[in-house]
C-alpha cells in the first residue's frame, strides 16, 4: 500500500512479478487513520507512509505491527512469518 496512483502500482507489480495486491491511497486516508503519515517525506514534498507492516485477523483486528523510523529498516521475512504463525496458532484470531 502506498500513495502512488494505481498506474504506478501496476508497473511496480509487473516489474516485481508480484502476486500481492497493491492498494493506492493517494490522499493518505489510511496514513492518518494509522498515524503513519510522513509529511513531506518524499523528495518532491509529497506526504508518504512511514515504512510499516500490520497483520490483521479475520475480525479486522490488528494483531501485529512492525514499524521503524528509519526508512532502510523493514520487517524481515522471518519476523513476518513468525507473526503469521502466531496468528495461525491462535486460530486466525490472535490472542485476546
Amino acid at each position: 500500500m502506498s500513495v502512488d496512483p494505481p498506474s504506478s502500482s501496476r508497473r511496480l507489480k509487473e516489474r516485481l512479478e508480484s502476486q500481492f495486491t497493491f492498494l493506492s491511497d493517494p490522499e493518505g486516508v489510511l496514513l492518518d487513520g494509522l498515524g503513519i503519515r510522513h509529511r513531506g517525506g518524499r523528495n518532491d514534498g509529497v506526504d508518504i507512509a512511514y515504512p510499516t507492516a500490520m497483520l490483521v485477523d479475520a475480525d479486522g483486528i490488528v494483531r501485529w505491527v512492525f514499524q521503524s523510523d528509519a526508512y532502510q529498516e523493514r520487517a524481515r521475512a522471518g519476523q513476518i512469518f513468525a507473526a503469521i504463525a502466531d496468528l495461525e496458532g491462535a486460530g486466525g484470531r490472535g490472542s485476546p
Partner: peptide, 23 residues
C-alpha cells in the same frame, strides 16, 4: 526521520477503507 506516534496498537480495529488496487 521525524518522531511520530502510531494511532493503532495490536488489539485495535484496522480502519475502514475504500481504495483502488493496481487495476
Amino acid at each position: 526521520l521525524p518522531a511520530h506516534t502510531l494511532a493503532i496498537d495490536p488489539g485495535d480495529p484496522f480502519p475502514a477503507y475504500a481504495l483502488e488496487d493496481q487495476d
